[in-house]
Write a protein that binds this DNA or RNA. Sequence first.
DNA 1: TTGAATTAAACAAACGTTTAATTAATTTTT
DNA 2: AAAAATTAATTAAACGTTTGTTTAATTCAA
Lengths: 206, 206
Amino acid sequence: MVTDKRTHIMERAIELFAEKGFEGASVRDLATQADVNIAMVNYYFGTKEGLFQQIVETRMATTRDKIEEIAANKTLSEIEKVDLIIELYVEGFLSQPGFHKMIQQEMLVTKREGMHEKLINTFIQNTNNFNSIIEKGIRKKVFTKVDAPLVFATIIGTVNQILKSKIVCNVFAGYNKNYDPYKDEQFKKRLITHIKQLIHSHLLNK
Amino acid sequence: MVTDKRTHIMERAIELFAEKGFEGASVRDLATQADVNIAMVNYYFGTKEGLFQQIVETRMATTRDKIEEIAANKTLSEIEKVDLIIELYVEGFLSQPGFHKMIQQEMLVTKREGMHEKLINTFIQNTNNFNSIIEKGIRKKVFTKVDAPLVFATIIGTVNQILKSKIVCNVFAGYNKNYDPYKDEQFKKRLITHIKQLIHSHLLNK
DNA sequence: TTGAATTAAACAAACGTTTAATTAATTTTT
DNA sequence: AAAAATTAATTAAACGTTTGTTTAATTCAA
């Protein structure tokens, strides 16, 4: 039950950090939400920042490894790889909206330098892996000569933009305020379709 | 000299808010950066949140009005309007990176509900104006049947992604760490070209 | 002389963290 | 297997700082 409590605190913390930001979410708030004593946060994670780092380190490695795996795969074509990465980001972001909101905020803020740099470095790795796929496609002449890193920025940026607010997202989806688009399989497909069509016509345009 | 001091505080506050977030930037910090007494912030803006709101209200109306103007224009074609909006966002974002970082953070955070809703509403207005352009283009059969609100999300999202960190941006641009891509005219052109090509092949694809 | 601008000092409240005491669980010894 | 000893988990209370804001006095300009 020890690790259960640890992960429980982390899970509740993700939602609070996403909602209020790192500074905006107080330790007392975190403890109340997780239904534990205030001192438990420091007991398990040392500091508030330690808790944040634990969350990031645990969850961010997954996406990075998956992208690395896709990039290194030798049986997939370049366009198949691009499609897989699009699906990976949409599914990952929509299934863990809180976590990715957290990350987005921290990428904007340069206050906690160590944390910020760690995020940037992982992101740069992902960019490089994506670039290598695109560049190979261009060399093979299956892709047009596109601006690879900016194509990556478009994919991530589009999903991030959707993630920015559920309300805005509802306007996009045209549904009512109580409906949760992140949990809707149809909305997910719609987003994937949009990005794929967009990127395909850009990459494969003659 | 009164308004000068007011705007001076606002200008310095934008940079601090962008760098550290709303909660992360303390009033003492703001006062020190603007080289004024701590009490002056409350004297001019009532509260810290009042300062934030003043900044947002002053600057955000400009973009909204420009988009409305473009959408209402009767001499421009639909594709010309789309191009103008792309240029508007890239130029606006790159010339005022601090302000737009601030906005991005506040759109992610739902703590200050009033502020958040105001941002969302303005954004929804912009989305609707953009949609009406796209829908007209589709009706005229000069555009393919695209997902208009998601196309808008792609444009904004791409620029926002670029804005997320100067370091990441430098990796995109392939330059050294001291170079400031936001001030580089060539990088701006590169970004505009990428988005235009991307959106064009998506909208005009047969 | 009147009102605005500016200041240093103080305010209570909230912050992250630590402490010291207590309970619960585990291990060691009998 | 029971008792004792040891470690881990949990708690309420307090720690010193920092927070945003206010006050009351002072300087400045009209």
